[in-house]
Design a protein around this nucleic acid. Structure first.
Length: 280
DNA sequence: AACCAGGGTGATG
DNA sequence: CATCACCATGGT
């Protein structure tokens, strides 16, 4: 991996190859959009365009400082996902073929608060509307960044001072009170990502579930997408069906220390191919 | 028009 | 512990 900085772009030569489409569209994040060959997105208060040119990862509207501080970690470029995926393929024939089909998904290391808040919004909701609510949340309460109409994800501190009425503009429904409670607990340090990273999965999950509106599934999402705990295994309605049909009697432990990565391949594959889940 | 969406809560058995 | 109505909102 060699980094080249020129103009307002970063070129990561021989970046460990991964598939941007599957990685950014597999349901782990909600703020990336395809713009031609490139993907446009915002994370950690910065807006970029990103695409692959052969083995080179091109990050536009950025610089070396941001790459080192944000994007290297966000795309988790120091982790060898090829190794992880090879290990997963040995667990089970179905998982092997699914991994080969979904192609090189990478779990992003997202901002803890954004991941937690986004998956609180996701409960009993559909993906297009989740994106719409998050977008509205950013437009109304985030900070304007760049020259375009782009906004950062609003901080927990900002949201912690809002009322349910203030939030009604984003139309998050009954989730508004959950967002505010989560914001208060994060802003006050009662729920603190650095300490959660040091805790056991069980203890970290217990702390997350003290937030009103955070149950088992959302807690696992926060652990996986916001805290880099790759053994976390969110069981949503799709994963429950998949487990019931193909992994009956098995628990998430079956998939080992990278269970979350396995989960992402399975979830994405069956979202893309639901007929293979319905049919008996 | 009823039903569903990357669920959680509180009440009840 | 298992089940169940209910939770707001927008799309089909």
């Amino acid at each position: 991996m060699k980094i080249i900085e020129l103009d307002d772009k970063i070129i990561v030569q021989n970046a460990e190859s991964f598939n941007l489409e599957s990685t950014l569209d597999c349901g782990q994040c909600f703020r990336w959009k395809k713009a031609g060959k490139k993907f446009h997105g915002i994370a950690f208060g910065k807006e970029i365009f990103v695409h692959f040119d052969e083995n080179n990862l091109i990050i536009e509207n950025s610089n070396l400082l941001d790459f080192n501080n944000i994007w290297k970690n966000y795309f988790d470029l120091n982790t060898n996902y090829e190794l992880i995926t090879e290990e997963l393929k040995n667990f089970n024939d179905l998982l092997k073929s699914v991994c080969e089909n979904t192609q090189k998904i990478r779990i992003l290391k997202q901002d803890f608060w954004e991941a937690l808040c986004s998956f609180i919004i996701s409960q009993n909701n559909n993906i297009p509307r989740i994106k719409k609510i998050i977008n509205s949340l950013c437009e109304n309460f985030g900070e304007k960044i760049g020259k375009n109409n782009s906004f950062s994800f609003p901080s927990a501190k900002i949201l912690s001072n809002l009322t349910v009425e203030d939030l009604s503009i984003v139309k998050s429904g009954f989730r508004a009170k959950y967002i505010i409670d989560a914001a208060k607990k994060v802003a006050s340090g009662m729920v603190e990502p650095l300490s959660l990273k040091q805790m056991s999965m069980f203890n970290a999950k217990s702390v997350l579930m003290t937030i009103n509106g955070v149950g088992s599934k959302v807690a696992e999402c926060a652990l996986l997408y916001g805290l880099g705990r790759l053994e976390a295994f969110p069981l949503d309605v799709w994963m429950k069906k998949i487990m019931e049909k193909f992994f009956a009697g098995k628990s998430p432990k079956f998939f080992g220390q990278f269970a979350g990565v396995a989960q992402q391949h399975l979830y994405y594959y069956f979202r893309m191919n639901p007929q293979n889940l319905i049919k008996t």
